[in-house]
């Protein structure tokens, strides 16, 4: 198991790109951090999620 945006997720073995596609995220509009390290967009297709990873999928919203 790993944790994605604070919730347990069954995604070990998937690449970042595969996980984003499975969950209907628009990969162009999110930033991804694994264990507090940013994954550059160009690496989404190569970086594999592993058990124990803490993943954050981040986007923009309205704010002051």
């Amino acid at each position: 198991m790993l944790k994605i945006n604070g919730k347990p997720a069954d995604a070990a073995g998937l690449t970042v790109a595969e996980y984003l596609a499975r969950e209907n995220f628009d990969a162009r509009k999110v930033a991804v951090e694994i264990n507090e390290e940013i994954v550059p967009k160009k690496n989404f297709a190569e970086v594999v999620l592993r058990d124990g990873d803490i993943v954050e999928i981040i986007g923009l919203m309205g704010g002051g």
């Binding site: 945006n5 999110v30 986007g59 923009l60 919203m61 704010g63």
Partner: peptide
Amino acid sequence: ITLAVRRANTREHENII
């Protein structure tokens, strides 16, 4: 224009950008 950075959510289909 200012924006905030937050956890993304696939339930929201609109993107402020």
